[in-house]
């Protein structure tokens, strides 16, 4: 920050995708903006910036949250996993199934969808179609690949259960 006295800076130490990070940010800085602008993690996307679209979904201490509705300062001492963190060892089965199902169109919402879907599957390995829809209904897709995304989540669940292959 070089805004020169516009804001007091807050030192925030957090763990992002397994690495310890320290950033100095003004109090109003959201976790989303800090991830994107201070840490170069642009996989989390900005659309509505008010918790309605889900494009910025990350895991905070393992729970899916909208990074636009978390102050960076709140994450001090906590663990954040972004879509980049989920993908560190190459494409996950879930990401592969997104591709296989044709769920990826313009792609802008997809990182958020992937994080929300991963969160769902970790808590519920066999979600029903209704549960998948409900779990993802905070993630907007204007290409409206909704049915494809549901297929991708179902296929991943089946794969993780060993139903196929």
């Amino acid at each position: 920050m070089s805004a020169g006295g516009l804001h007091d800076l807050q030192t925030v130490a957090l763990t992002v995708n397994g690495s310890e990070r320290t950033v100095a940010v003004p109090a109003h800085r959201t976790l989303l903006d800090a991830l994107r602008d201070e840490m170069g993690l642009t996989g989390s996307k900005t659309c509505c910036a008010e918790g309605e679209c889900g494009a910025c979904t990350v895991l905070l201490d393992g729970r899916a949250v909208n990074a636009c509705l978390v102050l960076c300062a709140e994450a001090d001492g906590h663990e954040v996993t972004t879509v980049e963190g989920l993908s560190e060892r190459g494409l996950t089965d879930l990401q592969e199934e997104f591709l296989n199902a044709g769920a990826v169109q313009c792609g802008f919402c997809i990182p958020g969808q992937v994080v929300s879907a991963e969160y769902l599957l970790r808590g519920n390995p066999s979600p029903s179609e209704e549960q998948i829809r409900e779990a993802l209904s905070g993630n907007l897709c204007r290409c409206a690949g909704y049915q494809r995304i549901v297929r991708a989540v179902q296929a991943t669940a089946a794969r993780r259960r060993g139903d196929r292959g």
């Binding site: 918790g51 889900g54 979904t57 905070l60 729970r63 899916a64 949250v65 909208n66 509705l69 978390v70 929300s116 969160y119 769902l120 409900e134 779990a135 209904s137 905070g138 993630n139």
Partner: peptide, 9 residues
Amino acid sequence: VGSVAIRNR
């Protein structure tokens, strides 16, 4: 109330 992510906060 909101979505899963909202309800987590």
